[in-house]
Simulated scan of single mutants.
Amino acid sequence: MAGRVTAVSRNATYSFSKPHRESVTLLAGLGVEGDVHAGETIRHQFRMTYEPDLPNLRQVHLMHEELFDELARKGFDVSAGQLGENITTRGVDLLGLPTGTLLHLGEEAVVEVTGLRNPCAKINDFRKGLLGEMFAMDPVSGEFTFKSGVMGVVRQGGVVRPQDPVEVELPPAPHRPLERV
């Protein structure tokens, strides 16, 4: 599978959305340089209050641009960076990847997928009713999944820009499905 980066975003302060950038620099073991969520230990604002020493499995937030197309068909105007993601992609089934997948971004950067983003209630503050669109029910199994992107850790640093290729390297089988992190 191959795709491309369509947008990159970062924010040095806690806020729901992240502004677009011409590029972002990924730092191995830390995350997006200059982003409030970068660090070796957890940087999620709420979770830091009760789990401050946990490893940061949410260094980079990636979201598939196809979600914005789906939301537009339902009347929601959402674009890259507005849901807090660092890297927006097209042409990669992020939600279908197994845990441990390596995403090669641009010329050097490598992000290991750690799990699904757990959507929070702030999504409804951004757009009323949007939180309900961040879940999908499998009609066969009855299981539900989160649609608000995946989280990862930086294994190899590098600069990432819009239009950069995304190459997917699956981990050895057996594959483990993504769970929320």
Rank of each mutant, 00 (worst) to 15 (best):
A72G: 03
A72S: 13
R73L: 12
R73W: 02
R73C: 05
R73N: 13
R73I: 00
K74A: 09
K74I: 02
K74C: 01
G75F: 03
F76V: 14
D77H: 12
V78N: 07
S79Q: 13
S79N: 10
A80I: 05
A80W: 02
A80H: 10
A80K: 06
G81K: 08
Q82I: 09
Q82D: 12
G84I: 03
G84P: 12
E85D: 13
E85N: 06
E85Y: 03
E85S: 01
N86F: 05
I87N: 06
T88N: 08
T88R: 03
T89W: 04
R90A: 12
R90H: 08
R90D: 00
R90V: 06
G91M: 04
V92F: 06
V92R: 13
L94S: 08
L95P: 10
L95R: 14
G96N: 09
L97R: 01
T99D: 11
T99A: 13
G100F: 10
G100W: 11
G100M: 07
T101M: 01
T101I: 04
L102M: 09
L102R: 14
L105R: 07
G106N: 01
G106M: 04
G106W: 05
E107A: 15
E107T: 13
E107K: 13
E108R: 14
E108K: 12
E108H: 13
A109C: 10
V110Y: 01
V110K: 01
V110T: 11
V111T: 08
V111H: 01
E112T: 07
E112L: 08
V113D: 02
V113Q: 02
V113Y: 00
T114L: 05
T114V: 04
T114K: 11
T114R: 10
G115C: 05
G115K: 13
R117N: 14
R117S: 11
N118V: 07
C120I: 11
N124C: 06
N124A: 11
D125P: 00
F126C: 10
F126E: 10
R127D: 06
